[in-house]
Design a protein around this nucleic acid. Sequence first.
DNA 1: ATATAAATGAAAATCATTTTCAATAACACT
DNA 2: AGTGTTATTGAAAATGATTTTCATTTATAT
Lengths: 157, 157
Amino acid sequence: MRSRHMGGPPWWHGRFRGCGYRFTVPRQAILDVLSGTLKHLSAEDIYFAVHKTYPNVGLTTVYRTLELLVHMGLVFKFDFGDGRARYELSEGPKGARHHHHLVCTSCNRVVDYTDFIDEEVELLGRTEKGLSDKFNFKITNHLIQFYGLCDKCRNSQ
Amino acid sequence: MRSRHMGGPPWWHGRFRGCGYRFTVPRQAILDVLSGTLKHLSAEDIYFAVHKTYPNVGLTTVYRTLELLVHMGLVFKFDFGDGRARYELSEGPKGARHHHHLVCTSCNRVVDYTDFIDEEVELLGRTEKGLSDKFNFKITNHLIQFYGLCDKCRNSQ
DNA sequence: ATATAAATGAAAATCATTTTCAATAACACT
DNA sequence: AGTGTTATTGAAAATGATTTTCATTTATAT
C-alpha cells in the first residue's frame, strides 16, 4: 500500500515512532475515522468506514490497531452493554470535547453530556490523587457513566 | 429439584413475586453465592460455586438468572477488560458495602475502594438530578472506575 | 391432585475478538 | 534510488463467552 501525504495531527507520526511503532496507512486511516466523528464506533463500524477509502484494510488490522491505540492512550474503549466494544479518540479531562456518557439500559442508546463535567473532573482529580497515594497506582484514566431509562423507553414501558 | 427452607433476605422472594417471577432454587443459590462474597465473580465462577451445592444447575441458567437479576436491579454487571463480565450484588450509594473500582490496565487486577466515596456519591447525586431533568432519563445507577498501572505493574515495566 | 405457564438443562448456534502464518510494506542504511 | 531487516498486514481458522433452541421439569394457582 502506497503512502500518501498525510493530513491530521502531524504529531501522531512522531508519537508512533517514539514508541518504536511504524505509522502505517491503515493506522492513519483508522485515526482519521475516529477523529472525524463524535459517534461511538464499534470495530466493525470503523472497518466499514476505512473500507470506503482503503478497501484492502482488513478487520483484523482494525482490531489490532485499536488495541494499540488504546494501549498508547490515544483511544478509549467503552462497553455500553450491547455486546461490542466502542471506541473514541480520547480527549483528556481538559479537552474541548471531553464528555461523559448516559446509557439507556433498555435500548442501549448513549447520550454524551458535557454539563456538570467541570465539577466532576475537579473532584475526580482530587480522588485520583488520594487513590494514587493510598494504593500506589499510576492512574491514567477514569470512567463515569450513568445508567437508566431514556425518554422513549421510560414512556413506552 | 426440591425446595428448601430458605435463608437470606426474605424480601428476595417477595421481590421476585412482585415482578411476576418465580423464586426458584437456582435463583436463590445464585443470590446466595453473590451475597456471600466480596469478589468480582464471572458467570463461570458463580456456576462453579453453585455447582458445589447444586450440581445440576447449568451454566445457561446462571447466565439467564444473572441477566434477570441485573434487569431487576439486584445485581450490577461490570466490564474490567478481561473479556468476561463480572457480577456484584448491587448495593445502593448509601449501602455499607458500596464501593468503586480501581482497575489495572496491565494485569486487570481490581481494587475496591470506599474512601472518597462519600464526596463522589454526593456529587453524583447532584449530577444525576441535573441529567435527569435535562435529558428526561430515569437514572437508576452509575459507574465510576479509575484506570492505571498497579503497584506491581508500574515497577515491573 | 391437576393444569398451566414459567423455568430449566444440554447441546448447538452465534458472533465478537484473537491467533496463525505466509506475504507485504515501512524505514534505516547505503 | 536500491537493499535488508523487521514490523505490519490480510485471510482464514480458531477461540471462547454468551445466547438460542427445544424438550423436560417445576412452581404455583386452581
